[in-house]
Amino acid sequence: MPSAVKHVLLILVPLIAVFAILPGLYQNHLLLFNFVTFLILAQGVNIIYGFTGYLPFGYVGFFGAGAYGFAVLVMHYQSPAIVAVLAAGLVAVLLGLLLTPLLRLSGAYFAIANLAASLAVLHLVANPALESITKGPYGVSLTGTFNPTYAYYAALVVLAVTVGGVVFLKNSSFGLALQAVREDAVSASMSGVNVVRMRIAAWLASALVAGLAGGIYAWYVSVFYPDNVFSGDFSIFAIVFALFGGVATISGPIIGVLILYGVYNLIGFTTPQYFQLIYGLLIMGLVLFLPAGLVSLAMRRGWNVP
């Protein structure tokens, strides 16, 4: 069996199946939706960071741009939710195109510039002068499209497509070439790889994923403010989850979200007073002892982790 098929059957199908069934068994629908959202965002970070080495500290910029793309289409053009979600993805891709010059930077410089870019988009959207378009800082209310059930399943579709995309990266020479660019851009170009085009492709793919997730988030919550959908927590959580599990794998970001976001909510429900202490220690321990993520535990034993 080709490994791509194996990865789809062993990871993608069970993941989607479980999250498709869970709403019937578990009451807290919003929590399940948040899990799916973070699964998408962590895989989006995986695409850009795991495969190309760019750490997107302002990743939420695409998510927020998607949420507001959705809102503008629904408010001003009365678009159906599905159309608005696709437009949300498009808005994020356009923002990604606008930000391609950032790819000239690397390491911490890229991370900082990306963070600044996301703040710039936040302040553009939240500008009171744009109230007639974005409702500025006063937030939007999209009661017309409110339908958490449909939004949840739309998120599952995006998750399936995203994980499918990572399965492709993990099993194709395209994904291999992306990793080659991450390891050494000069050697990659001497292997015939168009380095600039590869970086832009990965960048726009990760922007698309976050934009779609943002649009669906807007659809799900229907009432939100700029500070909600541009919250730095989204970037940080998505990055921490992806790193905790292990990037440049299919399963790493999934494991990271399930464990860390699970623990996050467990502590939040049971012992909220110790929340930041426990969570902080957990992340510190990971960075110190398992910098390549949980999956590296298995890889050290020579197991091939998809």
Binding site: S173, L176, Q179, A180, E183, D184, S187, S191, V193, A248
Partner: peptide
């Protein structure tokens, strides 16, 4: 070379 990739993967690129 692409350090984290295997020798075979290096050449496959």
């Amino acid at each position: 070379p692409f350090m984290s990739l295997t020798v075979r993967e290096n050449v496959r690129v």
